[in-house]
Design a protein around this nucleic acid. Structure first.
Lengths: 344, 344
DNA sequence: GTGAAAGCGCTAACAC
DNA sequence: GTGTTAGCGCTTTCAC
């Protein structure tokens, strides 16, 4: 079902050489006016479409980029994709989505696609690198931009938010409301993103003169179920927290569900803050107070940096950091008076 | 950043012709054993990757398919994508996502990608056809499968659910609970999917001997906001419904939010049923009773039919219909006694 | 079972 | 400005 009509067909009908047609159609200002229009008109009339394989083979690039995430099923990434796509389209690139399903080595496949000409560059949002024997210094030569997650010491350009500061903001909000017993449902910690958010939590707590008992920091895998389970654990403590900061919205949802099942009302009996500002966080009951990331902007910025690299401009050597905002909604409130007394 | 090593490099090192290497690497049983292994080993050792553009140019196919949806941002489609991708991968195909953003003519671009060799076939989930002058009978020759949505009289193979029956099931559930005043928040109706669900609603109501006043059927655009607004309208009626069947989950979420804002408790004062069984419908408060579509299976089935077409097998002439299940959760209950009396 | 040769459709050097 | 020529890397007849 390939477009039958090719460049030589147009050339014959217009009475010029294929080269001229190619030049006319690709907007190099090298074709003179009478010919130019004739070629364009004829191309449109014949419903011509250039064969991408032939063009890519010849030019040695595909005009496509790869955006690789842990899980395509996570709606979070789709806003990022929109930003990437908008920016890519302006520059004539198309965007392919890749999915590692969180498997170590899942990115190998996509690095291969870079080599086999499927794509010219990559935006990596998985927080890890390919497992095979590519060396770091070799990696740094590749047109790869890391976004959102971090890959330390990779030498790759990064586009991200300040996870630590954003987490600290969230905690500051709770502290400002009067909470003193604040727990953290953290992510899968050695991982940088989770570590930074946890660090932000700890530093903000310490900075506010509040204790961080080890039972108050539990680590989950970002799932709804983890949020539920860990919240149960927290509520079962002899001194349960009056507020929980979860490292993402899904765990916050889980925590709220567990609290409700335990007979608590959010935010009256327990305040909960999330991180990500998912689609539906606003519609959730109660609407979730959460850290909002500029998802689309992150995508756009990452693609911008990638375009720099692909066109030979030097990428920024410093990570590109975009600001977050704390969306204060209905899941946080001042703690109950009695609770404050008991905790004193 | 293309893989530098090509088929001729391997050929030289092994001491055979490029043709033999090609044959060895593509598993035609045409290369004898001593040579075969030597070639394979050398290819691995040299970290060889075939250049896709060259291969595609030569073979005249891309081994890629296009899955085109209205809105990549809708998580619903991601489960479908998973099914498509699983099935595609088994057959050596990759999947490209396309997005029409609901714009008429948005599919034109992707039909062009079929012609320019970007993809070999398409799974269309947008409910509409390209606007340009392709004729229907010509379309029916193209390797295109329509899924979920319907494109009537297109002559294209379809993979779908029975929307009418599923809607009727949902209504039957409400009737079974004792509801008599049941309203429907419908979709953008001339459109087939919305029409079928609405028809299912009407037929089930009529079949149960219940009236369908015109004020009880309102049409939205599948958005959260529409659900909110239309639910407000329904609750403001002199005789408000005791139950609402929404044509999708997002409008159901909106309806529940509006009900809550109006001081009603779901399901005590109002039962709500959705359609789709979105991610988070279960975590929603209350957990949403909704029609669950076999999303992944739909994707898998659609890709299966597309593979049939691509490999020259005849596609099924009848639409391929997959079963739905009604997930009964916490958003539906028997109506309050007083309400039943008032309605009598 | 393997090699030689042609060519997929396009663009880029190089002429003129 | 435009034409001529070559070739991107691969697969596939056609020989043998």
């Amino acid at each position: 079902m390939t477009g039958r009509v090719k460049i030589i067909d147009i050339a014959r009908r217009v009475g010029v050489s294929p080269a001229t047609v190619s030049r006319a159609l690709s907007d190099t200002g090298l074709v003179a006016e009478p010919t130019l229009s004739r070629i364009r008109d004829e191309a449109r009339a014949m419903n011509y479409r250039p064969n991408v394989s032939a063009r890519n083979l010849r030019t040695r690039r595909s005009k496509a980029v790869l955006m690789v995430v842990r899980d395509v099923g996570n709606p979070f990434y789709l806003d990022v994709l929109k930003g990437v796509e908008a920016c890519a389209r302006e520059a004539g690139y198309s965007v392919l989505m890749g999915n590692t399903e969180n498997q170590p080595g899942g990115e190998d496949r996509y690095f291969d696609m870079l080599r086999d000409g499927h794509a010219d560059g990559m935006i990596l949002i998985t927080g890890s690198l390919p497992e095979d024997e590519m060396h770091r210094d070799l990696l740094a030569q590749l047109p790869v931009v890391v976004a959102l997650e971090m890959v330390e010491q990779s030498g790759l350009p990064h586009v991200q938010i300040d996870n630590k500061a954003a987490a600290a903001d969230a905690v500051a909000h709770l502290v400002g409301l009067g909470h003193r017993r604040i727990a953290h449902i953290s992510g899968p910690v050695p991982e940088p993103m989770a570590s930074l958010r946890e660090r932000g939590f700890r530093e903000a707590m310490t900075g506010a003169g509040l204790p961080v008992p080890s039972s108050y920091v539990l680590r989950g895998d970002y799932s709804l179920a983890a949020g539920k389970g860990l919240c149960c654990q927290l509520l079962a403590l002899p001194e349960p927290p009056t507020a929980i900061f979860a490292a993402n919205d899904e765990m916050a949802f889980g925590a709220i569900a567990a609290a409700r099942r335990a007979g608590l009302e959010v935010p009256r009996d327990l305040s909960v803050v999330g991180f990500d500002d998912l689609y539906l966080s606003e519609a959730f009951q109660p609407p979730l107070t959460t850290v909002s990331q500029p998802r689309t902007e992150l995508g756009r910025a990452a693609m911008g940096v990638l375009l720099d690299i692909l066109s030979g401009r030097a990428p920024p050597s410093e990570p590109f950091v975009l600001p977050t905002t704390l969306q204060v909604r209905g899941s946080t409130a001042a703690p109950l008076a009695q609770v404050q007394l008991r905790s004193a």
